[in-house]
């Protein structure tokens, strides 16, 4: 969202189009305090926007839950450390 859009939203009532356009910013915590409060109030009162927000929130939570706890292979970690030691690490 541009600064100009921020200003427009901050100074006027938020309708559904504006709310949905900024929905991800809202869910990601990327809106400023005033706008976040106003958009949150709209989402809470509007069935359509509330439904969309709930869907996107659950989608993002599912992506987070699917985050693989993949760890760097031990052999790679050792290889990196060996390389860095040859560069002077811990010498």
């Amino acid at each position: 969202m541009t600064h100009e859009q921020d200003q427009q939203l901050a100074g006027s009532a938020i309708d559904c189009d504006a709310a949905l356009e900024s929905l991800f910013d809202f869910l990601d915590g990327e809106l400023d305090g005033s706008l976040e409060l106003r958009l949150g109030a709209h989402v809470q009162q509007c069935g359509r926007c509330s439904s969309r927000a709930d869907f996107e929130r659950r989608f993002l939570a599912a992506v987070q839950a699917a985050r693989t706890e993949e760890r760097c292979p031990i052999a790679l970690r050792e290889r990196v450390v060996t390389t860095l030691r040859s560069e002077g690490l811990g010498a």
Partner: peptide, 27 residues
Amino acid sequence: APRAAVRPSAPPAFTDAAIAGMDDVYR
């Protein structure tokens, strides 16, 4: 490795701060 073993020319915090993030960098 003990901090004291790191010579001045080597960044003293590199092992703690950077190596610890290798899982994130790998992912």
